Simulated scan of single mutants.
Amino acid sequence: MKILLIEDDQITGSYIQKGLTSSGHSVDWLTNGRDALSAGLDTEYDALVVDRMIPGLDGLSLVRSLRAASVRTPVLFLTAMSGVDDRVEGLDAGGDDYLIKPFAFSELAARINALVRRPPIATEKTRLRVGDLEMDLVSRTTCRDGQTIELLPREFALLELLMRNEGRVLTKTMFLEKIWNFNFDPQSSVVETHISRLRAKIDKPFPKPLLHTIKNTGYTLHARG
């Protein structure tokens, strides 16, 4: 496995590089966000391990830039920024997982392996449609009734999950497992917050709602009724 590590702390970077290399992986270690952006655009990696607080270009901006350039390499944020808002911000920026420092190397290695094992989105279906709402999975664009809808990465992922499960009720736990792949506090309102933002974009400007709340159960997307 070829991994790009972006970590400016010499002790931590050396520790991770040695551990991953001894596990049989090829590791490129960079300490600057701008250098990492060039490497991420020019080289095909299996995974990126990104510290948020790095010089040149911070981790969030780095990942946003890669995603904007259609680089879909799995990203694991590795950082001391441990607040729920910090984690949500990292995942919304395009990260796939988030590990807090200090960490156990065995968990770091397991999370990287899990990211790489995730199957890609099936290529035989590149467009989703529910009523007059359309999603293009290749161009990562969404429109309703011909009007383009700008979605943040996590909003896009939420809507994609709902559209793939048209008419099926999805619970809060299902969203957390499928979209965030993270053990949030059950009392967290992160799902409700993102659903509210998504609804404001795909339903509020249009006469007929598609996104429906099922009281005490979850959410569903359909065009009936």
Rank of each mutant, 00 (worst) to 15 (best):
N183E: 13
M163V: 15
V190L: 11
M174E: 15
S188I: 04
W180L: 07
N183F: 05
R199L: 03
N183R: 11
F184N: 03
N183K: 11
K178L: 00
G167W: 01
P186W: 10
E192C: 05
E177C: 05
G167N: 04
R168Q: 09
T173I: 11
N165A: 09
L198E: 02
E166F: 01
T193I: 09
R199G: 02
K172M: 05
N165K: 09
E177T: 12
F175A: 04
V191T: 06
T193W: 05
T171C: 01
I179P: 01
K178W: 00
N165E: 07
P186N: 10
N181G: 14
R197M: 13
N183T: 10
L170W: 04
T193K: 10
N183M: 06
T171A: 06
D185T: 12
T193M: 08
V190P: 00
H194K: 10
W180P: 00
Q187N: 11
D185Q: 14
L176R: 12
F184H: 10
P186I: 06
L198Y: 04
H194D: 14
T193Q: 11
F175L: 09
V169F: 03
S196M: 11
R164M: 14
R164H: 13
I195L: 14
G167Q: 02
G167F: 01
F182H: 10
N165S: 13
R168V: 08
W180I: 01
K172S: 07
E177W: 06
H194E: 15
Q187W: 03
I179Y: 12
I195K: 05
F175G: 01
H194M: 12
G167M: 02
Q187K: 13
M163H: 13
T171E: 07
L170G: 03
F182A: 02
V169D: 07
N165I: 06
R199K: 13
F184M: 07
R168A: 06
T171N: 02
T193L: 09
L170C: 06
R168T: 07
K178E: 11
F184C: 02
T173G: 15
L198T: 02
T173Q: 15
F182T: 07
F175V: 04
N183C: 03
T173W: 08
L170D: 02
M174C: 11
R199W: 08
R199P: 00
S189C: 00
L176W: 04
L198K: 03
R199H: 11
K172I: 12
I179D: 05
N165F: 06
W180K: 00
S196P: 00
T173D: 14
F175C: 04
F182D: 08
F184G: 00
L170I: 11
S196R: 14
V190D: 02
R168W: 00
V169S: 11
Q187C: 05
S196F: 12
I195V: 15
N183L: 05
Q187F: 05
W180A: 08
R164P: 07
P186Y: 11
D185G: 07
N183P: 03
R197A: 14
E192L: 09
I179H: 10
I195R: 03
R168S: 06
F184S: 08
L170Y: 04
P186R: 05
R199A: 11
E177V: 09
N181T: 10
W180E: 06
K178G: 00
P186H: 09
V191F: 06
I179V: 15
P186V: 05
